[in-house]
Design a protein around this nucleic acid. Structure first.
Length: 556
RNA sequence: UGGGGUAUAGCCAAGUUGGUAAGGCAGCGGGUUUUGAUCCCGCCAUUCGUAGGUUCGAGUCCUGCUACCCCAGCCA
C-alpha cells in the first residue's frame, strides 16, 4: 500500500540517535515481550511496529520474547496466535522466539545472589499482613518481622520453597529495599512466589516462579537488549528495574523507556476486558470481526499495511490519548482504494424487469476492475432482462438531490445502459416487489445521443447469473467513546454492531474464497470473504464502508 | 508538598543552541468523475493548560498555579 514515506520521528528514536552518536551502542536491540495470556490487539500492534520498526530502520535486531512468568494465566494456544499475528503484520523476529522461562535457572541463581548479599529474604507474612505493612501512598510502610533473617536461613528457606515444601501463599522471596520509599514498588517487592502450576514451557520443573519486575530486566540484560520499550504504567517500575540490574552480577544495563499506550474510541483495548468479551460470549471469539484484535481485524479485511500505516500515523509519545476510529478507517480505505479490485453486489435486492428486452435475452459486457488503474484489467459481466438493484436506490418520487432511479426518470446502470422506470408492482403490504423499466440500447459506454443528461449511476447484478450472498455489516462494538470508563462496560455494547443482509454478488465472485483478499463493491464499501463462506453460500464481511457524503446530507 | 508522568486545533502529532506554530485524520467550500467513491484546488491555532517573570524576541528559559493519567497484586 501507499505507506507514508518518511521515517517516523519520536522521542525514543531521538534517544537512540544520541546513543548511537555518542558511541554508547553500536547496534540497537529491542524486543517485543507479550505475556501469552490472550490474543494480540491493535494496541500491541503499536508496540510491535515501534520495536520491530526501530530494529529495521537502524539495522538492529528485535526479539520476540514471551513473558511467561505466570503459568496460571497462560496457554500455548496464545503463544501460537501471537507468533502468527506478528508474522502477519510483516515482521520477523531475530532467531528463535525466546521465553522468559528459558532463563528460570539463571533467574534463580540471581535470586540466590541477592540473598547472599543480604538483599533478599524469605517472608512468611500472609497477604493481609504484607499489605498492612506496606503502608499507603502517603504513609511509609514498616519492616516485616522476617526482614532481618540471616543469610543462611534465607538460603535454606528459599531452597525449601523451590523444593515444594511450602504451600502457595505461605511464603515468598522479597527484595530488601526500602519500606519507606515513595515508590510503592520499592517497598520490598516480592520477586518469587510459590505456584504449583503446570507451565506450557517448563512443564512441572518449577513450583516457584519469578515476578515480572525481577524477570523482565534480567531477561533484557541476558539478551543484550539496548532499549527496553514499554508503556507508561511501568514508569515507577523503572526504579526497580534499575535496582535489580545494579545489584546482581551482570554485564549489560539495558535502559527502559516508556511511551503511552493506544486508546481507540468505541472499543476496549485491555486484555482483561477482551477476555471478558470472549468468555461471556458477547462476541463470537477472539477473531470476531468487531474485535480490535489482530485476528479480528484480519478477518474483518484489514491489511497488514493498513495497520502498520495506522501505527505510523498515530505516532509515539508520552501523552495519554484517545484516537478516533476514523483514523483507522482512513488507513484501510487508503490501502483498499488503490489495491482492491471493483465488483458489484446488491445487499438488499429489489427486482428490475427491463420490458423492452426480449424474454431470455442475455448480453455479455465488460467492466474495468479499477476505474483509475487499467493494469488491473477488465472482467465480464452479464446483462439480461431481469436484474437486481439496491432497494434504497429507487424511489417512486424524489427531489432533484436524489440522483438515483425514480419513477418516470432515468438512471445509468454502472458499466451498462441507461434505464427508465415505468411502473412498479407492490405486494399487499405496499412494498415494491418489481420495478418495470425500459432501457436505451444506444447508451452503452456513451451518453444519450440527443444530449439528455442522466446524472445518477447505480450498481446492479444480473438476476440470471448472480450468486446468492450474505453480507455482514459491522458497526462500532460500543455505544460510547470510552467504554472502559463505564461502571460496567458490557452494558455499553452496541446491539446493532452486526447487521446481516442477504443479497447477490455478481457472477465473477461465485467462487470467491477467504484467500482472495478484498473487493470494493462499488458504491457500497470494501468487503472480503469470510471463513464461514462456502461455494453455495457466499459470506462477505464489510471491512469498511465508502466515505458517504450523501448520508451526511440526508441525515442533516 | 507521598511519588512518578503529561498538557500545542474536534482527534493524533511535529516543534531539541529562544527568532515569529509542520503534517495527518475529521470538517468546510470549489473542480473533475459512468462509484454521492477516488483524484485535484482552497479554507481550517495572532496562538501553544493558566498567571506572572527574564529577553529586542518565549510553545521553547524561570517561578507560581490548575487539570488529567499511573502507583498501595505473592498480575504483567
Amino acid at each position: 500500500m501507499a505507506e507514508t514515506e518518511n521515517r517516523p520521528t519520536n522521542f525514543i528514536r531521538q534517544i537512540i540517535d544520541k546513543d548511537l552518536a555518542s558511541g554508547l551502542h553500536q547496534q540497537v536491540k529491542t524486543r517485543f515481550p507479550p505475556e501469552p495470556n490472550g490474543f494480540l490487539h491493535i494496541g500491541h500492534a503499536k508496540s510491535i511496529c515501534l520495536n520491530f520498526g526501530i530494529a529495521e530502520d537502524y539495522q538492529g535486531t528485535c526479539n520476540l520474547r514471551f513473558d511467561d512468568t505466570n503459568p496460571a494465566k497462560e496457554d500455548i494456544s496464545f503463544v501460537n496466535s501471537i507468533k502468527e499475528d506478528v508474522h502477519w503484520l510483516g515482521f520477523e523476529w531475530s532467531g528463535e522466539a525466546r521465553y522468559s522461562s528459558d532463563y528460570f535457572d539463571r533467574l534463580h541463581g540471581f535470586a540466590v545472589e541477592l540473598i547472599e548479599k543480604g538483599l533478599a529474604y524469605v517472608d512468611f507474612s500472609t497477604h493481609d499482613e504484607m499489605r498492612a505493612l506496606r503502608g499507603t501512598l502517603t504513609e511509609p510502610g514498616s519492616n516485616s518481622p522476617y526482614r532481618d533473617t540471616d543469610v543462611q536461613t534465607n538460603l535454606q528457606e528459599f531452597a525449601k520453597m523451590a523444593n515444594g515444601e511450602y504451600q502457595e501463599g505461605q511464603c515468598s522471596l522479597r527484595a530488601k529495599i526500602d519500606m519507606a520509599s515513595p515508590f510503592m514498588c520499592m517497598r520490598d517487592p516480592v520477586i518469587y512466589r510459590v505456584k504449583f502450576a503446570h507451565h506450557h514451557q517448563t512443564k512441572d520443573k518449577w513450583c516457584i516462579y519469578p515476578m515480572y519486575d525481577f524477570t523482565h530486566c534480567i531477561s533484557d540484560a541476558i539478551e543484550g537488549i539496548t532499549h527496553s520499550l514499554c508503556t507508561l504504567e511501568f514508569q515507577d517500575n523503572r526504579r526497580l528495574y534499575d535496582w535489580v540490574i545494579d545489584n546482581i552480577t551482570i554485564d549489560a544495563h539495558p535502559r527502559q523507556y516508556e511511551f503511552s499506550r493506544l486508546n481507540l474510541e468505541y472499543t476496549v483495548l485491555s486484555k482483561r476486558r477482551l477476555i471478558q468479551l470472549v468468555d461471556e460470549k458477547h462476541v463470537s471469539g477472539w477473531d470476531d470481526p468487531r474485535m480490535p484484535t489482530i485476528a479480528g481485524l484480519r478477518r474483518r479485511g484489514y491489511t497488514p499495511g493498513a495497520v502498520r500505516e495506522f501505527c505510523k500515523r498515530i505516532g509515539v509519545t508520552k501523552m495519554d490519548n484517545m484516537v478516533e476510529m476514523g483514523m483507522l478507517e482512513a488507513c484501510i480505505r487508503d490501502d483498499l482504494n488503490v489495491n482492491a479490485p471493483r465488483a458489484m453486489a446488491v445487499l438488499e435486492p429489489v427486482k428490475v424487469i427491463i420490458e423492452n428486452l426480449p424474454e431470455g435475452s442475455s448480453e455479455t459486457l465488460t467492466a474495468p476492475n479499477h476505474p483509475n488503474d487499467e493494469s488491473m484489467g477488465i472482467r465480464e459481466i452479464t446483462f439480461s432482462r431481469e436484474i437486481w438493484i439496491e432497494a434504497e436506490d429507487f424511489r417512486e418520487q424524489a427531489n432533484k438531490k436524489f440522483k438515483r432511479l425514480v419513477l418516470g426518470k432515468e438512471v445509468r446502470l454502472r458499466n451498462a445502459y441507461v434505464i427508465k422506470a415505468e411502473r412498479v408492482d407492490k405486494d399487499d403490504a405496499g412494498n415494491i416487489t418489481t420495478i418495470y423499466c425500459t432501457y436505451d440500447e444506444q447508451t452503452l459506454g456513451k451518453d444519450p445521443a440527443d444530449g439528455r443528461k442522466v446524472k445518477g449511476v447505480i450498481h446492479w447484478v444480473d438476476a440470471n447469473t448472480a450468486a446468492p450472498a450474505q453480507f455482514r455489516l459491522y458497526d462500532r462494538l460500543f455505544n460510547v467513546p470510552n467504554p472502559a470508563a463505564q461502571e460496567n462496560f458490557v452494558n455499553a455494547i452496541n446491539d446493532a454492531s452486526l447487521i446481516v443482509k442477504n443479497g447477490y454478488a455478481e457472477s465473477s465472485l461465485a467462487h470467491a474464497t477467504v484467500d482472495d483478499g478484498n473487493w470494493q463493491f462499488e458504491r457500497t464499501g470494501y468487503f472480503c470473504c469470510d471463513k464461514d463462506s462456502s461455494e453455495g453460500q457466499l459470506v462477505f464481511n464489510q471491512t469498511v464502508g465508502l466515505r458517504d457524503t450523501w448520508a451526511k446530507i440526508e441525515n442533516q
